[in-house]
Design a protein around this nucleic acid. Structure first.
Lengths: 193, 193
DNA sequence: GTCTATACCTTGATAGAC
DNA sequence: GTCTATCAAGGTATAGAC
C-alpha cells in the first residue's frame, strides 16, 4: 500500500485526533503527538507537509467516523424519526469526554473560526457539520418535512450543541441526560404523525 | 489612585479582552497586546505577574460589563418576562462579532476547559455564566417559577449558546435572528400566564 | 513608573546521515 | 523509510537602566 495508508501515518492521525480534542488544536504541539506515538518530531514531515495537513487528515478521519456512525443508525432502524433519536442521543456514548472537553465538532469549529496566523478558515471545518446536517435533512424528507428541512436540521444541531456546551461548562451529567431527552421529545413533538 | 486603576493597566485589559475574543486566549501573545496598545511587552509585568493574571482581569471586566447590562435590562422594564426577552436578544447587538467569533463567554469557556499546560481550570471561568444564570433565576422567581428555576435557566443559556454557535459556524445572520426569536417564543410559551 | 535589552524555552520546520 | 541534529522564529518572563 502507498504512503497514504502507512501505519505510522495512521497512528499520527489517531493521536492528533485525541489531542486536538482534549487539548485543542493550537495547544497541541508536535512534541505532544511525538510523546503519545513514540514517533520522533522530525519524522512527521515525511507523512505531512505542515501542521495544517495533519488537521486536514484529522477532519477527514472524523468525517469517515461519522459516516460509519450514520450508517449504523440506518442499520439499527428503518424509521427516520427513530434514526434522528439515535443521532440525538449519540453524545451520551461519550459522556465523560463530552463533559470534560465539550463536543469535538463544536469546540474545534469555534477554535478555528477565530482569526488564525495562517488563515485556516478555508479549511473544510464545517465538513462534519455539513455531513450531519445533510443526513438529518434526508431523514426529514422521508418524514414528509421537505420545505423546512434545512431549518429543522439547524435547530437540531443547535439544540445538541447548546445542551452539550452547558453540560460541560457545569460538568453536569444529569443536565446532559435531561437536555438530550428534551431534544428527543422535541423531535417527537414536531415530527410524529 | 492605586496601581489597580492605572490607565495603562486598563488599556491592557481592554486590548486583551478584544484579542482573547477574536483570536482566542492561547493564540493571543504579549506582542499582539503590545501592538494594539503601544505598550512595550516587558512592561506588562509591572501590571500583571503572568498571562493568567491578565486572563483573570479580563474575566473580571466581563463580569462587570454584564452586571451593567443586566442592570440596564432591569431599568428598561419591570416585567421579568420582558427582561428575559431583552437578555435573549442581546447577542443581536453584537451581530457581526457573534457571527465571526461566536459567543465570547461560550467560546472562552470551551477553550479553557481543555487541558492546559498550566492548569487554569481553577479559574473563575464560569463566573459570567454564573452571573447570568443567577439573574435569570431571580427573574423566574418573580414570575412564580421557583421549583425549576435552575433547570429553566440552564435551558435558556443552552438555547442561546446553540443558536449562536450554529449561526457562527454557517455565518448565517438569518438563522441567528430566527433562532433568537424562537427562544423568545419559547420564553413566552412557558412563562406567560 | 516606564522602557530596553535579553535570557531561556518551545514552536514548527529543515537537512542530511543511515 | 527512519532517525538525529539543528534552524529560525516567536513565546513568556526577567533584569536593570532611566
Amino acid at each position: 500500500m502507498g504512503t497514504k495508508g502507512s501505519a505510522n501515518r495512521q497512528r499520527i492521525i489517531v493521536a492528533a485526533d485525541h489531542l486536538f480534542y482534549s487539548h485543542g488544536y493550537n495547544q497541541t504541539s508536535f512534541s505532544d503527538i511525538s510523546d503519545e506515538t513514540g514517533i520522533p518530531r522530525g519524522n512527521f514531515y515525511y507523512y505531512f507537509k505542515t501542521k495544517e495537513d495533519i488537521l486536514g487528515a484529522v477532519v477527514d478521519a472524523r468525517v469517515s467516523d461519522f459516516k460509519e456512525i450514520l450508517q449504523q443508525c440506518e442499520k439499527d432502524t428503518l424509521d427516520p424519526l427513530e434514526r434522528l433519536q439515535l443521532l440525538a442521543q449519540f453524545p451520551l456514548k461519550h459522556e465523560s469526554d463530552v463533559l470534560k472537553y465539550g463536543c469535538p465538532i463544536g469546540s474545534l469549529s469555534l477554535e478555528l473560526m477565530k482569526e488564525q496566523a495562517s488563515d485556516i478558515s478555508q479549511m473544510p471545518l464545517t465538513a462534519v457539520f455539513d455531513l450531519l446536517k445533510e443526513w438529518v435533512e434526508v431523514q426529514l424528507s422521508a418524514l414528509g418535512q421537505t420545505s423546512n428541512a434545512d431549518e429543522i436540521a439547524k435547530d437540531l444541531l443547535a439544540k445538541l450543541q447548546g445542551v452539550t456546551l452547558i453540560a460541560s461548562v457545569y460538568n453536569d451529567v444529569a443536565y446532559l441526560h435531561r437536555g438530550i431527552n428534551d431534544v428527543k421529545d422535541w423531535l417527537n413533538q414536531i415530527l410524529s404523525h
